[in-house]
């Protein structure tokens, strides 16, 4: 897939956004995007530009479509029968729906962390190298290096380095979620999608993951769906507020939380509904 992720000219894509003034060139671009589960429309005419190496948070009440949009970026929604879409999503200017884009290759470039940690029933080591194993990587040195690098990146290395070959299922909830993040970044993707990664964790584990997210944005473009507005305000650079399948407002996080333009956004962040 040589053409699917060709880096675009950094000066090319800066202009078109209406509401935000990104410093970085736009990286993921959503254009007039509609999405349907069967006949039920879940997303309405979404236009959004997500910049490189920043944390973009999606907030909004349950069922507002924020997870649906997130799961379109790596085309995970296609596991569900009878879905359809209109409009386009591009990464580096290349449409992810282009027939030349292989879904497998696309997903290898986009890491994903789920609401509930989903370790595979194998050792810690094998969990982390899973994305490499399925590409046929057999060299011990490469695998070892990946395990160490990924686990260090999620600050789990010191806690587990002596039991890498034990089952992953013995770890605590917070450790498991960090392991899943390590696995998601093991094949060095460009984008990290996080679907409410802390919703099943206690406050201490949550704080650790949040620290980690801020640390990881140096290397990855991060899009996070969260139910916690505090979390969005703590860790994100940009925030998008969704309501009933529509993007209501998208701006820099401090603006969304201090001076939102839309009344619905204000009502939501001040807790008047949702």
């Amino acid at each position: 897939m040589p053409n699917s992720f060709s880096p675009s000219d950094p000066h090319q894509a800066t202009s078109s956004s209406a509401t935000l003034v990104p410093l970085e060139p736009s990286f993921i671009e959503v254009k007039e995007f509609d999405f349907f589960y069967g006949k039920k429309q879940a997303l309405f005419d979404i236009n959004l530009e997500i910049p490189d190496r920043q944390v973009t948070a999606f907030i909004g009440p349950s069922g507002c479509g924020k997870s649906t949009l997130l799961r379109n970026f790596n085309r995970m929604n296609e596991l569900i029968p009878n879905v359809s879409h209109a409009g386009d999503i591009t990464i580096h200017g290349t449409s992810i729906f282009d027939p030349s884009v292989e879904i497998i290759a696309l997903r290898r470039r986009i890491g994903m962390v789920f609401q509930k940690s989903n370790p595979f029933p194998m050792s810690l080591y094998e969990n982390v190298v899973y994305p490499l194993r399925i590409t046929g990587q057999r060299q011990r040195a490469v695998l070892d290096e990946t395990v160490e690098r990924s686990l260090k990146a999620v600050v789990l290395w010191d806690e587990v380095k002596d039991r890498l070959h034990e089952s992953a299922l013995g770890l605590s909830g917070g450790q498991l979620q960090r392991l899943c993040i390590a696995r998601a970044i093991a094949s060095q993707p460009e984008i990290l999608l996080m679907d409410e990664p802390c919703s099943a964790l206690d406050p201490i584990a949550t704080a650790k993951i949040e620290e980690l997210i801020v640390e990881l944005k140096k290397d990855f473009t991060i899009v996070i769906v969260t139910h916690s507005m505090h979390q969005a305000s703590r860790i994100s650079d940009l925030t998008a507020f969704f309501y009933l399948g529509k993007l209501i407002e998208f701006d820099q996080t401090n603006k969304i939380f201090t001076a939102p333009i839309q009344k619905q956004t204000e009502d939501y962040i001040t807790g008047r509904f949702g």
Binding site: M76, I104, L106, F114, P131, I134, T135
Partner: peptide, 12 residues
């Protein structure tokens, strides 16, 4: 979630 986890990592 395990199926999705595997697919999301680019597994066939």
């Amino acid at each position: 979630v395990l199926r999705e986890g595997s697919y999301a990592l680019g597994a066939t």
